[in-house]
């Protein structure tokens, strides 16, 4: 296994007066899908937003490859090759699907070959290319959000709960898409849907109350029901 692409070292983040992350330390190895699991309110979204610079770490260090990005402005972090797909998908509803995609391209132009592959992964993107994005269904918006993150090759994609509220058929389609994306990019995936996470994840970290309480191989966690029960408790069972 190659070295870590992203490293968090004792990261503390406050939101207003609340202390949310209590010293997160995490290594994300290069390549494949790595999953951050945890119940609601554990600090998963805060971790991703802190990496992206949307919330600031009060203490600790975040290193992406050899760059210390702890205090870097969000646009500069993005320019290093990190894409972010937020939980609300961050689609620009007033713009067309094409305009949404064009914004994500640093040059404003598309690589036809790459666009062809994106259309093959998500046919809805091609079908609704000139439509206003606000008219898309929830699943189509999620596909657009992910397509936007891969319009150019990124080093790392942070994805926050992509399966939330989606129908099982769409989730199945998304597993295939994620596998293909992970062949060229590292994905850090925040999930509550353990079945989805298990089918994709290579590594897993479990976060609880702003701390990492477990990290290791997904295969080991998937085969150890006692460990799952202990770490993930009932909150995940509800989502299966």
């Amino acid at each position: 296994m190659s070295g870590a692409i992203l490293r968090l070292d004792d990261v503390h983040t406050d939101i207003g007066q609340y202390h949310i992350l209590h010293g997160i330390s995490l290594n994300v190895p290069e390549g494949g899908v790595h999953v951050l699991l945890g119940r609601n309110g554990a600090g998963k979204t805060t971790t991703l937003r802190t990496v992206m610079g949307l919330w600031r770490a009060r203490k600790g260090a975040i290193v992406f490859r050899h760059h210390d990005i702890t205090a870097m402005p969000t646009p500069d972090i993005a320019r290093l090759g990190i894409a972010y797909v937020p939980e609300n998908m961050g689609i620009f509803g007033g713009l067309t699907v094409e305009e949404n995609m064009r914004l994500a391209s640093t040059t404003g132009r598309f690589d036809d070959e790459r666009l062809g592959r994106i259309f093959a992964l998500f046919p809805a993107i091609e079908k609704f290319w000139t439509s206003q994005a606000s008219g898309l269904s929830g699943g189509q918006k999620q596909m657009l959000a992910i397509a936007r993150a891969i319009v150019e090759r990124r080093e790392l994609i942070l994805i926050d709960e992509p399966t939330k509220g989606l129908a099982p058929a769409i989730i199945r389609a998304m597993i295939g898409a994620f596998r293909e994306i992970a062949t060229e990019t590292t994905i850090l995936l925040v999930e509550q849907n353990f079945l989805f996470a298990r089918s994709l994840g290579r590594g897993v970290a479990v976060i609880d109350d702003g701390r990492i309480v477990h990290h290791g191989d997904m295969a080991a966690l998937a085969s150890d029901e006692a460990l799952q029960t202990r770490l993930l408790s009932l909150s995940l069972a509800e989502h299966q």
């Binding site: 993005a78 509803g93 914004l103």
Partner: peptide, 24 residues
Amino acid sequence: TRIGLLIRAGVENREMVESLGFRI
């Protein structure tokens, strides 16, 4: 224009435009 596209997107969701790498 591309700047116009960025302004329209920024009015909708400033944070996302920054996450795409643009200085709002």
